[in-house]
Each structure stands twice: as C-alpha cells, then as structure tokens.
Design a protein around this nucleic acid. Sequence first.
DNA 1: CGTTTTTCCGTAAACGTTTACGAGAACACA
DNA 2: TGTGTTCTCGTAAACGTTTACGGAAAAACG
Lengths: 341, 341
Amino acid sequence: MASSIHDLARHLNISIGTVSRALNGRADVNADTRQRVLEAARTLNYSPNQSGRSLRQGATRSIAFMLQPHPGDQQYGEPFFIPFLIGLQARLAESGLDLTVVMGAPGDYQQERLRRVVETRRADAVLLAWTRREDERIDYLTQAGFPFATLGRSRSGAKSYPSLDLDFEKAGADAVDRLVARGHRRIAAIRPSLDLNFGYLFLAGYRKALQRHGIEVDPELIASGFINEAGGYEVTPQVMRSKDPPTAIIFNNDAMALGGCKALAEMGIRPGQDMAVTVIVDTPLCRYFSPALTAFRPALEPMGQRLAEMLLASLPAFAGPEGPRIIREVWPLELVARDSD
Amino acid sequence: MASSIHDLARHLNISIGTVSRALNGRADVNADTRQRVLEAARTLNYSPNQSGRSLRQGATRSIAFMLQPHPGDQQYGEPFFIPFLIGLQARLAESGLDLTVVMGAPGDYQQERLRRVVETRRADAVLLAWTRREDERIDYLTQAGFPFATLGRSRSGAKSYPSLDLDFEKAGADAVDRLVARGHRRIAAIRPSLDLNFGYLFLAGYRKALQRHGIEVDPELIASGFINEAGGYEVTPQVMRSKDPPTAIIFNNDAMALGGCKALAEMGIRPGQDMAVTVIVDTPLCRYFSPALTAFRPALEPMGQRLAEMLLASLPAFAGPEGPRIIREVWPLELVARDSD
DNA sequence: CGTTTTTCCGTAAACGTTTACGAGAACACA
DNA sequence: TGTGTTCTCGTAAACGTTTACGGAAAAACG
C-alpha cells in the first residue's frame, strides 16, 4: 500500500535521486524523464512520506495553532475560533503548509503541550492566542528561538515576533463615547480576571474615554471575574451594589455578558430598557440573545488570512525577496448596534 | 538548540543504542545507566525528534480529526466542536497520542485534504464527522486500508470501522411524541438537503412516530434546505404555505431553526405562542435565543472520550489483550424543555 | 575451575527522503 | 580532433531514531 520512492525508481528503471529531483521540479532532469516520473507517480499513487521528508529537510511544512479552551467555557466553544481558522488555513494552504490545531486540556496554560510541539519538532512554527500581559509561552518561544506569531499582543518577548491584535482600547473608548452620547454617566466595566491582555487594553480605553468626558473613574464600577457565564453572573451584582449604581455596563466578553444579563434579570433589571449593555467582542450569541446585544465585531476570517501572511513573512524559508520581516498590526472592531443599549 | 540522541550519547560516553533503550524503558539496560541517561536528558533538554521516530517506527503517534466547516455556517463556528474535541484530546493524551485537527476550506468535501493526510502519512488514524448516507471518504479509507473512526453512521464501508452516533431517530420520534401529547397534529419537519446521515435518521423517526399516532405523513410539511441560517429562513415559508399549515415545526439543526424563527417572525408568527418549535441538536444558541428553544442535547465531552476509546480499541498497537475490536455505539439525546413549544 | 546463563551494551542496518558531488555523454567551439 | 561546456543522471551520505544481533563481562552453577 505504502509505495515509496524506491518502488517508483525501480518501476521506471532509474535512480531514486532522479525521481526525487523530477518530483521536486529541479532543473537538472530531462523533460522527458520528468514526464515519465510524474505519470508513474500518479498511476502508482505515490506521494512522499512526510516523516522521511521532514527528517531530511529539518522542516515539517506544517504550523501549529495552539487552541486553549477556557475552563467552564465549554458550552460556548470558543466562538471566533472557526472563522479565524478558516482564514488561516486558506492562506497557509496557498504556500503548501498544513495547519494543525493542537488542543490542550481546559485550564492549563498549555506550556506543557507547547514544549512538546517545539521539542519534538512537530511544527515549523506555532501560533498563540489569548495572549496574556506577561506570557510565559512567549518567553519560552523567544528564548528557545522557535518561530511563532500571536493573535493578540503581550508585553513579553520584546516585540520580536509578528502579532495581529484587535484594537480593544479603541473599542472600549468607543463604547464609552456611545453611551455618554446617549446620556449615561455611570458606566460600569466588567472584564476577565486573568491577566489576558485584551482585558487591560479594554480597561485602558474605558478609563481614557471617561476622563476625556470629565467623568470620574469609579472603582466601584469596575469588576472582574472568570471569563465565562458563571463569572459574569457572579460579578455583575458587585457593581450594582454601588451607592450610585450604573445605568450602563460594558462587558469585555460575550459569555460574561450573558451571565451578567441573567443576574440583572434576577434583579428585575431589563437590559436594553433599565440598563444599557454593550459587549466588546461580538459573537453569534450576542446576535441571538434577547435583547440582541450591541457589540463590537472583529473581521475574523481576514484576520486569519493576514496573520498567516505575517507569520510567513517572518520565516526565512517563505519570506519574500527583501528577506524576513516582523509585522505587527492592530485591527479595528466594528460597532454593531442592536437592542441592548 | 536541537540536541539529538547523539549529543546525549557523546555527553555520557555511551552508545546511542543504549541511550535509546534507556529512554524507552527497555529491560536490557542497567538501572544505574538508565538513571544517568534520564538525568542527562533532562539537563540537556533532550526530547526525541518526532520525524526521526515516526520514520523509523512507521507511526506518527498522532491522530487527525478532519474538521469540515459548512459554507455559510462560519458565523456559528461548528457549535459542538470544542467540547467534543476536549473529550477526544483528553482520552488520546492518556495513551500518549497527539490530536491534530486538520482544517479544510468550507464547502469542499475534504476528499483532497484527507488524501493528503493519508498518503503522506501524517497521522496514524483519522476521525471523520458529518457522515453522509453514502460517504466517499469512508469508501476511500476502507479501500486504502487506513484506520479511522467516525462521529456518525453511514451506509458506506460495511461497518468495518468504529462509529459513535447520536440516536437521531429516537430524538425525532420523541419530539413528535411530545408535540402530539401537547395536542399538535400538524407537525412539520425541516432538515438539511445534503445527504447527511442524521437528516435521514431524524426523518425516519419523525415518520414512524406520526404513523404510530395514526397521523398521516404530509409531504407538504417536510422540507429541506441549506444547513445554515439562510437555509432555514428560505425553506420555512414553504411548509407554511400548506393548505393546512403546521402548528409545530421540528428543526434538525440549530442554525436552520434560527433562520426559520426569523422567517416566522416576519410572518407575524411567534415561536412558543403561535407555533411550537423544537430543535434536534441543542447548542448554546438554542439556550439564549428568545424564546429559548426546546431542544435535544448530546453529551459532547463524554462522546469525545468514548470515540477516542473506540478508535484505540480498533488499533492493533493500542488494543487490549483480547485484540482489536470494532465498537459501534449510538448515544441518546436528552430533551431540554424550554419555552418554544 | 570450567561451563552455562544472565546482564548489559555496542554495532550497524533500516525507515524514506533530499541533495552535494562527480561522472559520462552530448554538444559547441576552435 | 581536442578542449571546454552543458545536460542528465547515478552514487552515497545525511537527517534522528529504533532495534535485531552478537559479544564481552559478570554472575551463577556444577
């Protein structure tokens, strides 16, 4: 079943070297023999064994995306995962690279899994998501000299790697602007408690915008919890207990927003009527919730394509004529106004 | 950076053979030297190159899950994907296997991608989902003699492979039973137009239950469309144009249900009040839609674990003492009663 | 002490590729 | 015809492992 390059060579009565050269489009092979080789490869259903090839070339021609489910978030299924991966895969396929998604168990910081991928050389580069403020994965990879790129920024790693992030700071500020324009002055912010970088960015934007509007930043209106529905449910009542409760809440995450709305409902507070609710990252859940949640939407599939491109540009083997380049980009989030504010 | 087994051997002044044996827990190596090898491996940060190992052993120690996004479904992100993969990965990790998810472009039937994985031997086995009635992927894999298992049944492949499926037939029947018990006699069924196997099973259960209740199966109440929101939106009006319109609709898919509800709303028909709506496979979207949709829920994470187990049991290298076994299971769906019926 | 067994380890081949090197043949040029 | 160049291909090494085989040393046994 497994036909090797030797079978092919024997069948054609030529050497394996010539076969390999013919298959790989090298110049020093007669046009005629090349034709015969290609044909025989097709009829014998030959395609090169990837292990052999990787071993010889020191490259696997595949890049790994580290997927990290959050604990308790299993119901949601990492909402923007698929469209992003579709874009990623499309661009990588253009360059003949495979995308393999490596799963970790929920909750661990995937250091272990990352080490395995890197040390056993299962991929030529890795892609990280859910970047943290200080990210040990980034430290590890830079220190190990292993190529990588990130979806999201971080303070780690001295910006020596490509990264594509969303402008959470601007989104946070935009959300505030919009609410202020609609007459709100008591605006709460709820974000994840982990040191996920987008949480910081969001909060920074929120703070700046409030100050710009001359509104004092009230610590009682800022809370953080687990990045899932339970977290939002648990933490939303905190900001409501303020002496001067908010009239609007900005959630940094769809799952937290849904939990928060549940908590509000139990307090007899109707999102969209008694309370303005805004979500920073839009997902289908926001759209179908009732009331439909106003949210800021990322362009996931193009982002996947672009990040793949940026990663490739940083790899010597794939970089263009001007050599490897480190590109870092920040993309906007687009407001989708719905019924909740 | 890349320390090989040769480095290790040189450092310890022993042969690479011994190092390898020590690392792999073979019996014929002195306990003392083994200790030294393990220690050196740790300090030199050695771990075996996977390509070399795969090449020699003819096995990659990884299994591939073929993820196939549906066109137009990108918004939803394959709802039950993540929890299922979490279970899968957990069980595979127990046996030292890696899980790699290989993406295809939306819409193609992933034959091409599957061939690549199989022919270049990137994985030791593959897992298929979204099985079709007649599934060319299954035909290909059985014919190629490549190990695989499926999430979902099919008529292809002569049942010579492990499969785990949900009991869509029973769910379809249960849905009808429930609606009939609540007084409905005109019950519509909307399913995907592709020959996805679960669509057939669902419809079979639906038919049987109606007949059991002495209700005639009306072709006007059965429709099929694209398996996404647009499909549900487009096709739902069809069943409503019946001379004797339905008072209840069972949707075979969450996305189609959402589209259907949109269509109903535009006709001034309120799900849960003017029309009973039931969904066969529950997702978070069903839960958060308004009204919350009554749906049948699968136990995704355990299913992932179990399918991994079944696949392993079928692989000679991992089967237990009684040798490789082909296991096929059908799991129940659990009714989650909500507000839409 | 001689023989047999056991323990431990080194040697070398093999997995399937790619590629540097060199060589024979054909060709061009004088 | 002799020399240099160009085409085309075969040879063999290398990538990093694992493992069958055999042998030396140690241990066990009579």
